[in-house]
Design a protein around this nucleic acid. Structure first.
Lengths: 233, 233
DNA sequence: CGAGCCGTTGAGTTCATTCAAACAGGGTGG
DNA sequence: CCACCCTGTTTGAATGAACTCAACGGCTCG
């Protein structure tokens, strides 16, 4: 069904970037893709790879493990830069997580060539990859947490930071419970249970499945202090 | 005790790179550090950061969480490139994992300036960061596995690949059980139990704590098939 | 209205953790 | 040389946590 989405950007559903205010550096080779939820922006099977900048909506970079389980390796919000090489596994893809997701795609080869002659592009490409590293390490830290409650709590805090929320604002989750589960390497049921648990502890308040108010930021962050007593190093 | 190690490379224990065969690109600004096990190569508190290439030995990039737990974000073997910005947490450092670890350190600022004028350096820096991403995503995949046995199995396989072992060779683990535990986000006891469990299943053979023979590669890799029945997607 | 997806909740099992203890090896000093 | 300590590793028992299987309510869409 999504076969056409597996083609490189440039397809009918994709439009050439043309209304960019300034076409400096990488923007000159950008191709804009607009997808709805569940549609692949790019499958990772071709040898050609891309780098990306999410303009609006949200995207997830995931990999399907031999057992059928799915692990989301990166979750991209507007203004996020993403780039990686050599995806470490069989089948992986970049997919829109919400409707009307707009992503700028930069062909890797062209970008590399351009980067060698244009310092501006070189810097842009570096930032692209450094951003990806930062998010990867954040995810490692979240996955490294012991309890599911901590994982979900850290996830919520991080999403709140990334959407530049003011204290007291309500966080709008762009992802389904299933996506959160695949991101945190938990089962859907555990994610749901953790959320209601956090609500019961008055750390968050749920107004509908996707609307989360962070009531007790410290409680959410320092659950080691609340749950297990901190053993000093 | 290690206060002196927290200084930038260039200290008495560090020697200027001088016997490099070719000083192309980044090598011209490299500073060589030699450390023993447990010694910090560089603490992450100063604003100045470095990029690294491990020459011999092994190094770990870890972060200490508020609760006192330690998470190793990256494990570096000879020839590995490492670079990251904005470490996502409080106290983290790059530390030698075995004695006589030699690491080439590249000051980030200088490297960036150099990269903008020298295409060769630009490419080297890119590769440095892309390598780091690849390992980060591999670790995410390992941490995303459900059981401790799978985690340890995937870890062993990955270490075997990275040390370019021939089939039948004996893998020499450079890390203690504690390091493996902090890398895989498990307790030391669970790591130990998983190893003896894998041995009991005839997937590996232990000849001393650090010497591992991989007997059944497929069994180690596809434990979903052996343990839980694979549910087709 | 029924189908399908998403989200939640319950019951039972499996698994990792904690606490505890024991063992091996490497070093030092008696 | 042996006793001793310290670190690293292993094993046991009991607790706690997450997973699977299952069922149900809510919602959208055809």
């Amino acid at each position: 069904m999504w076969d056409e989405a597996r083609l490189a950007p440039g397809h009918s559903r994709h439009h050439e970037a043309q209304a960019q205010p300034r076409k400096s550096g990488l923007d000159s080779i950008a191709v804009i893709a607009r997808q709805n939820r569940g549609e692949e922006i790019h499958s990772w099977e071709g040898a050609d790879q891309y780098w990306y900048r999410v303009i609006s909506g949200a995207a997830k970079f995931y990999i399907v493990l031999p057992g059928g389980r799915r692990q989301i390796l990166d979750l991209l919000l507007p203004n996020d830069l993403f780039g990686c090489l050599q995806p470490p596994g069989h089948h992986c893809a970049l997919e829109a997580a919400v409707n009307d997701t707009v992503v700028a795609c930069y062909p890797r080869k062209s970008a590399e060539v351009l980067a060698e002659s244009d310092p501006e592009t070189c810097r842009q490409v570096q930032k692209m990859v450094l951003d990806t590293i930062a998010r990867s390490q954040e995810l490692i830290l979240i996955l490294g947490r012991t309890t599911a409650r901590e994982k979900v709590g850290a996830f919520l805090l991080r999403m709140a930071e990334r959407t530049s929320m003011r204290p007291g604002d309500r966080l709008l989750l762009l992802t389904s419970r299933y996506d959160i589960a695949d991101y945190l390497a938990l089962s859907v049921e555990t994610v749901s249970r953790s959320l209601t648990d956090l609500q019961r502890r008055n750390f968050i308040a749920l107004a509908g499945p996707r609307r989360v108010s962070i009531v007790n930021r410290l409680g959410l962050a320092e659950q080691d202090h609340a749950g297990n007593p901190v053993k000093a190093g």
